[in-house]
Computed example of a mutant assay.
Amino acid sequence: MNFAIIGCGYVADMYMQTLPGLDGITLLGAYDRAPERLAAFTAFHKIHAYPSMEAVLADERVQMVVNLTNPRSHYEVSLRALESGRHVYSEKPLAMTMEEADALAAAARARGLQLASAPCNHLSDVVQALKHELESGRLGKPLLAQAEMDDGMVSALDYSSWRSISGAPWPARDEFEVGCTMEHAGYQISPLVALFGPVRRVTAFSACLLPGKGAEIGVTDPSPDLSIGVLEFDGGVVARLTNSIIAPSDRSLRVVCEGGVATLSDVWEYHTPLRISPTGNGLKARVPRLLEKRLSRFMPKMLFGWRRRVRYGRQVPRTQGGHHMDFSRGIAQLAAQIEKGAPALVSSELALHVTEVTLALQSPASAGQAQVMRTGQDLPAGMAGA
């Protein structure tokens, strides 16, 4: 399937780094509204530069648009692409409000088009391996998930110097104004939904603990830099999800079952180990974790576990962000669903559901009340009764 990229910023380079080796998709070119960014990106990657978005949509060869613009432009760009008759894969979040997200899904449905959004890390080998372990019943019934999405004290770092491989600056203003929950919660929500089915209720708390962050770059309305949510699934499974750009970096996912504990040390790392133990992260597990994280780049074909080993299907390059995360796998998956009838592992229903859960975490109900999710009804059930 032929596709074009709209938006040539920081994350676009990570997509370009992970495109090689994926079958069934062909990049025709890219467009960015900033001429100097477009020129730098297309020259670096040696791809065609479209002079305008109209030129992209006028190219009859383009079957899919990959929307990598900043979050507040996602709705407008995706809607224009859908209205032109193109399938759309968007960076997260799908939209900034549920009204916009619903409108995109309706536009795709009315035209018989496919719509999906990042993140796609629920497609990673390690998450699929964990799903297989839960489905096998060897660990017994899942009870509790503990999900961390802490990125460290970002505001104290020299983020103004961060550049992608083609020279794009790290989008600090978006990160601080859109917020860490909107930007990153999906990396834990997507795996949780893949494992346990749709979220039924969300009880959340959020706060802006560093209101002055980003003032030097013009940030005047920062979003919450901390959110903590309790996600309830069918069958009694409960997950606690924490997002922050304050606490020390931790992107682990731990699933506690009646018969053992499964741990992924970093959901961004497609090469992270799947570790299974009777009781979880004791000293015996924590020490190997540090070694595994440092050595995993040299051992890309194997997941190392205390009791489980799983083969990788594709080696993922190390991206500019310093981690092995296959940004482009979702594009290839959507193309395979459209052209080959592959299982629907990315979809508008999943994108809508992840967006709704994310917004519930970002803007909790008053008095700590639980918010009932209305999306996700057509998503596969989880394995709560395993």
Rank of each mutant, 00 (worst) to 15 (best):
F3T: 04
I5Y: 10
G9F: 00
V11Y: 12
M14G: 05
L22I: 03
D23M: 11
A30K: 08
Y31E: 06
R33N: 02
P35Y: 14
L38A: 15
Y50C: 05
P51R: 13
V56W: 05
Q63T: 01
Q63P: 01
V66S: 06
R72N: 11
L79F: 07
L79P: 00
E83F: 05
E91M: 02
L94N: 10
E99W: 06
E100M: 08
A101W: 06
D102V: 00
L104M: 09
A107G: 10
A107S: 14
A108I: 02
L115C: 05
C120E: 00
N121L: 11
H122Y: 01
L130F: 02
L134I: 07
S136H: 09
M149C: 11
S160M: 11
S161D: 04
S161L: 13
S166H: 15
F176G: 04
E177R: 01
A185P: 00
Y187M: 12
G212E: 12
K213Y: 00
V219F: 11
V219W: 12
T220K: 15
I228M: 14
D234A: 15
I246V: 15
L253M: 15
A262T: 03
T263N: 11
S265Y: 13
D266Y: 08
H271I: 09
I276P: 11
I276G: 12
P278C: 14
T279Q: 14
N281F: 03
V287S: 11
V287H: 04
P288N: 12
Q315L: 08
H323Y: 13
D326W: 06
F327S: 01
R329P: 03
I331W: 12
L334I: 05
I338K: 11
H353W: 04
L359D: 01
L359H: 05
S363E: 09
Q371G: 06
L379Q: 05
G382V: 03
A384E: 01
A386T: 07
